[in-house]
Design a binder for these strands. Sequence first.
DNA 1: AACACGCACAACCGCAATGCG
DNA 2: ACGCATTGCGGTTGTGCGTGT
Length: 306
Amino acid sequence: MGRPPCCDKVGIKKGPWTPEEDIILVSYIQEHGPGNWRSVPTNTGLLRCSKSCRLRWTNYLRPGIKRGNFTPHEEGMIIHLQALLGNKWAAIASYLPQRTDNDIKNYWNTHLKKKIKKFQPGLDPKMASSSDSSTYQFVSKSFSDRKSSNTFDISTTKTTDHHHASSTTLNLNQSCSTPTSYASSTENISRLLEGWMRSSPKAEKFHQNNSSTLEIFSTIGTSKGNTAHHFGSNEELESILSFDNMSNIAWEKSSCDSDHQQQKENLVHERKERSENEPPLSFIENWLLGENGGQVEEMMELPQIF
DNA sequence: AACACGCACAACCGCAATGCG
DNA sequence: ACGCATTGCGGTTGTGCGTGT
């Protein structure tokens, strides 16, 4: 105590991150791996505090983050888990590996809380921390609302993500009929730049003043006459940053491995190992995997109520 | 066209937990 | 065991954007 927060230091920038800053940060992490955040601002010259760098990475730039619309299944999971765990967003996020706790928290506050309120006008959503019957009712209805042909590929694994270190998690991957929505850092930045170029008058200036790294992105993104400013393909970006192919840095630390095939094999192995070496599933996992897992499927088949 | 309003989400803040010498 | 530094987490705020008037 008494120590000023790092972000209060003079010269520390606040506010939205620019693509330039993102690229610097990603490049640095690409080289050194995530962690040792204290050294990041010093070594990169970023006028951000270490905390801000870490947050930017974990909530936005980290590979494997899925952004945008929550699927009905994810929604149902969040409602379910919130009812069970309360506002333990990090814990909830560990069950939805593609989502950040911040994202889930935002989604809860802006969408789901209202939905629940609508359904239970007299019930304070904050009270939904226990698995009372009304919550279950809502959860059931919520799931029933989500009729879908998707099925859960439920498998257990151990996340090694530093963010959720050593916690045992469930991977609830929809057995994809649609392309995977895992996103790499390059995709995240691509998307960011794309939107930024489209909307920001600063983009022009940005182009003029860019560094060599930025020139690469500009070349990809805004060739003359390309009104859409579309980044030709993510592959191009991938190849530049070689992001998802890095084998020499600490990506093992991330739970967001984009190599699904490998991941699947690992899961089978881990599940087997786990059943031999580890204590039984936690209550929640049992609940989700066991009888209620079945209920989830049943709920999917219920007629639409809302 | 201009303004007000509400929404969504990125980012920040402060405290707690953890790691380390 | 202690104190400091670092990281993690949950709550809150700020800002940009879309929509309605």
